[in-house]
Nucleic acid binder design. Structure first.
Length: 305
DNA sequence: CGGTTTTGACCAGCGC
DNA sequence: GCGCTGGTCAAAACCG
């Protein structure tokens, strides 16, 4: 039973980093600046080791910086999630999350439409038919799970701007938590990316955002000129900071999406730090193929060898 | 008026 | 079979 485990690799990468404060993507120092501005309501929280069920508690000290760390929920090849409870930091029940993909929903909608068109009976019977179709469809169709990426971020706002447009389609109370979980779907047609947003009850200042799937379109919001990767400038207000943080968050997700799609995410070999930093040749080729990264990766990182 | 949010209902999967 | 929980649906409300 192979586990696609990226979190352990992330720790190794961070631990071996010769540049304290770099995350595996090399875009951390901006938030060092923020922390010094004493407005730092966001900080590194640690990384959950999903494979072994414990946290790397010393990670904040290793990094000595503030940032949000992308975390990956590993999946076994049989499709079972190893541990989905990022928020509550407790073991999840097996198969606790049953997720139907948007393609499933579309298929279901097709069936629904067919049922509606065919039915000549009264409304009630029509509805019953539709429900039966829905049930049959859901029962027969094996649900496929998309790879997930979870961000733990200290933030005062629940729904962080990440450059994409989302439609909220549900909200549920979470067991053992006073904070509800919100469900969002990307508004772009044919894009089946979803995300869940929930606030940690162990640390209410922490927001856990879990992305599922990969966008099939570029971000509709981000102005490319704004993605320089330059360090954050000193902030004069929490609003300024929030704005810069949100931009950073967008950058991180963009980078993660780009890497994910380019490296057949979830990958289980190495983090892209070497690609981006240690191997200029690879970096150049990489950036040539993935123009967005030029906006995301700090320029000083690209120059290093 | 069109897009988004809210919210109660429904469903699937799991444990007992 | 029953109850619990997470995820989704969809009608109504809301908003710009």
């Amino acid at each position: 039973m192979e586990k696609k485990d990226m979190v352990v690799n992330m720790e190794a990468t961070i631990g071996n980093s010769s540049l304290p404060g770099y995350n595996p993507f090399g875009n951390v120092f901006d938030f060092c600046e923020v922390e010094k501005s004493s407005l730092g309501f966001m900080e590194l929280l640690g990384v959950q080791d999903y494979a072994n069920g414990h946290q790397f508690l010393d990670l904040p000290q290793q990094l000595s910086s503030t940032m949000s760390v992308p975390m990956v929920v590993p999946y076994e090849t049989n499709g079972k999630e190893c541990n989905s409870e990022v928020l509550n930091q407790q073991p999840a029940t097996p198969n606790s999350s049953s997720i139907s993909s948007a393609s499933t929903s579309e298929a279901v909608n097709d069936e629904h439409n067919k049922a509606v068109n065919k039915a000549e009976e009264g409304e009630e019977e029509e509805q019953n038919k539709t429900k039966k179709l829905l049930k049959a469809k859901k029962t027969n169709q094996k649900r496929q799970k998309e790879p997930r990426v979870a961000f733990m971020t200290k933030s005062e706002v629940d729904h962080l701007e990440d450059g994409y447009r989302w439609r909220k389609y549900g909200q549920k109370a979470v067991k053992n938590s006073p904070f509800p979980r919100s469900y969002y779907r990307c508004t772009s047609a044919s894009c089946n990316v979803k995300k869940r947003v929930e606030r940690s009850f162990t640390d209410p200042s922490t927001v856990v955002t879990t992305y599922e799937g990969q966008h099939t379109h570029p971000s509709p919001v981000i102005p490319r000129s704004g993605l320089t990767g330059a360090p954050l400038t000193p902030c004069v207000s929490a609003t300024d900071y929030l704005s810069q943080y949100q931009q950073h968050h967008r950058q991180q997700q963009l980078l993660f999406n780009t890497l994910s799609s380019s490296l057949s995410f979830p990958y289980n070999t190495c983090f892209p730090q070497e690609r981006l930093v240690c191997n200029p040749g690879t970096t150049a080729a990489f950036l040539k193929d993935h123009g967005l990264l030029q906006d995301v990766v700090p320029s000083h990182m690209l120059k290093e060898e």
